[in-house]
């Protein structure tokens, strides 16, 4: 089957007074229909930039400088804003980060969902739209009667659900989740992730999940892309990556998660800071923090390719 979303060599930079901030460079990935891809990495690695590029809602200064984003057969990079509006929400929708603040506090939750429906489907009848909002609430597990509530009457978990309902308002094919679950506590987070998994199966959604928390991605995604400093450093099947992480950065990220079972141990972390994307380190961008750094790492950029033993792609000179 053809992938529903294909990103080829996406380069999104931010223009600043001191030069281009290379937030995403040469990013490649594909999302098959009904599949979930997890995009993981530290803050500032370009995950959110990629998500915003997919909807073309980059903040001022953000420019897609190169590459293609093929959504359901059409490249959306050259599309005008007017054409883009027709695609948003119908083809691709996003659940924003920060469930607590993503809704307008002075409108009813239902109004906001109806607004999403009617903006994207101007012919929709008002009463039908409200009916659909109720159906969406039911779908995400909130009492449909509560469409008449204001956001402050909802708990954190319900707001997160309502945001998911809003993203689903126009039956998108691809759903982007930007850090779903962060800022929620364990139980609500577990409930949200379960809901997203259920929805994926029931509606056949394709998802792109962005998170710095690998355990969230492990729970929900079949494929994983690990991003570091604007580039994908490891990409492939989740099972294979978690079983045999090849890139030293991925290994560090996985080790940073203490296991719930087993002995009490001293925690480990990746030393150093994420690089300044205005002046990224030469060649392999991880070289200043890498425990296995070699001379070649500072001179030659490692390509993303299949390595000897693993079934997935990795960009590292070790292999």
């Amino acid at each position: 089957m053809a992938p529903i979303l294909e990103v080829q060599d996406l380069t999104t930079n931010y223009r600043t007074l001191s030069g281009w901030v290379r937030a995403a460079e040469g990013v490649n990935f594909q999302v098959e229909p009904g599949e979930a891809l997890g995009l993981a990495g530290e803050s500032g690695c370009g995950k959110t930039t990629v998500a915003l590029s997919l909807l073309k809602i980059l903040p001022q200064g953000g420019v897609i400088r190169d590459g293609k984003i093929i959504l359901d057969g059409t490249d959306i990079v050259p599309l005008s804003e007017k054409d883009m509006r027709k695609l948003r929400w119908k083809k691709i929708a996003i659940v924003f980060q920060g469930a607590m603040n993503a809704m307008n506090p002075v409108y009813k939750v239902g109004d906001q969902i109806v607004e999403a429906i009617r903006t994207h489907e101007p012919d929709a009848d008002n009463r039908d739209a409200w009916e659909r909002a109720r159906k969406l609430f039911e779908l995400v597990g909130i009492d449909p009667e509560r469409v008449d509530n204001y956001p402050h009457e909802f708990s954190g978990g319900m707001r997160q659900r309502a945001l998911i309902a809003m993203a689903l308002a126009a039956n998108p094919k691809v759903l982007i989740g930007d850090e779903p679950g962060t800022a929620l506590d364990v139980i609500v987070q577990a409930q949200t992730l379960k809901l997203m998994r259920d929805l994926k199966e029931r509606l056949g959604l394709s998802m792109l999940l962005i998170s710095h928390d690998l355990s969230i991605i492990a729970e929900t995604c079949e494929k994983v892309a690990i991003m570091y400093a604007g580039r994908i450093v490891e990409y492939g099947d989740a099972q294979s990556i978690f079983k045999e992480p090849l890139h030293p950065y991925t290994q560090g990220l996985i080790k940073a998660f203490p296991a719930l079972t087993g002995e009490r141990i001293r925690l480990t972390s990746i030393p150093g800071q994420p690089p300044d994307l205005l002046h990224p380190p030469p060649a392999c961008r991880f070289n200043p923090r890498c425990p296995y750094v070699m001379d070649v790492c500072k001179k030659v950029d490692p390509p993303l390719q299949k390595s000897g033993s693993g079934d997935h792609l990795v960009a590292c000179h070790l292999y």
Binding site: A190, Q191, S215
Partner: peptide, 23 residues
């Protein structure tokens, strides 16, 4: 027990049991 069951595990082959419902 419910809190522990809700902790996400960084292992794709791990299948989580039921999460307690409600708030």
């Amino acid at each position: 027990q419910a809190l522990i069951a809700a902790v996400p595990v960084p292992d794709p082959s791990h299948r989580r049991g039921d999460v307690i419902s409600g708030e």
